[in-house]
């Protein structure tokens, strides 16, 4: 459902992604791990269509279409969801109104009738209960003054409401307590239906205990330097990233020769 080929991206002329290849088939959960600054968030932002990042080479095919040609909203409405590492705050924009607008945009796109405030509230409360979130989340302004954990919970709620075909979670588990970790896991696992794809960016094995990945990638200096099964995550946890220097050097070397 998602095929990334030789993706290069830069910010302010500085190359960040240096040739990413990755394929997610329907139903698969892929995890991406890797040191700080290796380009994980850049990859997720490029997939979502953030124009701050310039795609300098490569292509991305999503559901048979050229994803990079699609405007941001179009990608979203076609089922690409990004749980942001740093969700933005919009004071004065009621969270409930924001969520309803998002849900209705999706419904409209699918040719379904929009939900009025009452029906939406019922729908949202159901999901909130399912994730065991605090219903007060709805009555506040969008992420404004939310704690780090509350923001991540709100991302999770949005994912659950929008039921994406491809969910990209950028460190949704960072800064979460154990309970919240369960919420994220529950959110993802309840959406797993053998069709939806997941790209889970994380630094911690503990999340992958709950969301068991089919494939684990290690991203370093803008390249995927290793790919393996779920046991790779455990190996990383034990060994750390020290061994990566070699791999990165090898990549740079390859680039130098090319």
């Amino acid at each position: 459902m998602l095929k990334i080929e030789n993706l290069h991206a830069a910010i302010d002329g500085k190359p960040i992604l240096k040739g990413i290849d990755l394929e997610i088939r329907p139903g698969e959960v892929h995890a991406i791990m890797g040191p700080n600054g290796s380009g994980k968030s850049t990859l997720s932002q490029v997939l979502a269509g953030n124009e701050e990042y310039e795609v300098t080479a490569g292509r991305v095919i999503y559901k048979g279409r050229d994803l990079l040609e699609m405007p941001v909203e179009e990608r979203a409405l076609e089922g690409v969801f990004l749980a942001f590492q740093y969700p933005v705050e919009i004071p004065g924009f009621a969270n409930a109104e924001f969520l309803r607008a998002a849900v209705n945009a999706h419904r409209k796109h699918r040719g379904e009738p929009e939900l009025d405030a009452f029906d939406f509230s019922r729908f949202a409360r159901e999901k909130i209960e399912q994730l065991e979130l605090d219903p007060k989340l709805l009555t506040r302004a969008l992420n404004a003054g939310f704690s780090g954990g509350e923001k991540k919970r709100n991302e999770c709620l949005q994912m659950t409401l929008l039921e994406p075909s491809l969910a990209i979670l950028d460190e949704t588990d960072s800064g979460l307590d154990i309970d919240a970790l369960q919420i994220v896991a529950k959110g993802v696992n309840s959406l797993r239906d053998g069709q939806r794809g997941f790209l889970v960016i994380t630094h911690y094995q503990r999340l992958l205990d709950h969301i068991v990945p089919d494939v684990v990638h290690v991203l370093a200096d803008g390249r995927i330097v290793r790919t393996g099964g779920k046991e790779l995550a455990r190996e990383l946890e034990e060994k750390g990233y020290g061994w990566l220097d070699e791999a990165v050097a090898a990549g740079a070397d390859k680039e130098g020769r090319a």
Binding site: N50, E51, E73, V88, I90, F93, A94, A102, A105
Partner: peptide, 27 residues
Amino acid sequence: IGADQIFYCNQRGIATEDAVSMIVGGF
């Protein structure tokens, strides 16, 4: 209200015009 806020709304499927109008309305 900068590019980040608009991008966030767009990523949830909300058109820029609607987002701005809702943000301003709420404000």
